[in-house]
Design a protein around this nucleic acid. Structure first.
Lengths: 152, 152
DNA sequence: GTTTCATGTAACTCAATGTGTTACGTGATA
DNA sequence: TATCACGTAACACATTGAGTTACATGAAAC
């Protein structure tokens, strides 16, 4: 099954957005190695959810509305329309076959718990957390570059 | 994304299989409202994993090799080739962009934990558990039928 | 006012993949 | 030898995320 990477794409875009006052779809697409239309299409939900804003014309582009710390990964997932999390699932929702009912009950229970855990995790991670991790990684990378230069 | 219901289908088939000495793909397909070829194709992995056996010719069909209690749902998932659990995921596995690395790390962490929980749940449910639940549901249904008959 | 820039959106294509179906080969039993 | 049942290849189909093109809308610059 093909992977849905919209959440991943969107988080990536939001962090790049946070680094600048405003940024165009074209620039974001370059950062993400994708197409400007894909960016606009994906961000549409975030605009409706009030997480970001978009301006047309000269000097236009995308900008964050809320602070990074107030946006959780689950907020972003919700803004995207809560796309399905699982690739696996039951074949029939309300089967007449009692055997299938038993199968569905077990599967639903396990999937429900796993999804609850995942959502809990996504709720507890904010964009600020991601940004901090990004800064930390950048510092490490700078340090490595420096050592490499001294060595050469 | 389209749902992968092979685990659900297979569990359903296994429980029907447990009710009889042997059962043909045709009969299973009728139980599952699908096609005999789909049954054979899906069960191929289970045969290779030694969970079931198949016989050709007159009186042939599928039969269970191991006891229901010794087969967990995660065994079945593994026999199917461990199809991907999540519909969502990262866009790039090993991105050069540090921003994307931070995004991936967070997503991977959350997904890994959720998958671990799901697998733990699937490990702890055996086919015997499902069968017991099935029997319980059948008893309830029989009781309901009885009450309905007395009432009418 | 016209030009330029940037978003908004529809429409089409492409790729991946689970599922359904047909067709034919293999092997076992009656 | 005929029949039954599995094994498998090959193809069709539907869904869906992603990429792309085309065009309309609106805002700023000139």
């Amino acid at each position: 099954m093909k992977r849905d990477s919209r959440l991943s794409i969107t988080l990536h875009a939001l962090l790049h957005m946070a680094e600048r006052e405003t940024i165009t779809s074209e620039e974001l697409a370059a950062c993400l190695s994708t197409n400007p239309v894909v960016v606009r299409r994906t961000m549409a939900g975030l605009r409706e959810a009030g997480l970001v804003r978009s301006e047309k014309g000269h000097g236009g582009g995308w900008s964050l509305v809320r602070d990074l710390a107030t946006i959780s990964l689950s907020d972003v997932h919700a803004a995207l329309g809560e796309p399905p999390v699982f690739a696996i699932g039951n074949r029939t929702e309300a089967p007449g076959c009692v055997v299938e009912q038993a199968v569905n009950a077990a599967m639903d229970g396990a999937l429900r718990d796993a999804e609850a855990l995942l959502m809990q995790r996504l709720e507890r991670i904010s964009l600020a957390d991601l940004s901090n991790d990004f800064q930390r990684r950048m510092a490490i990378r700078r340090q490595q570059m420096k050592e490499q230069n001294h060595g050469g």
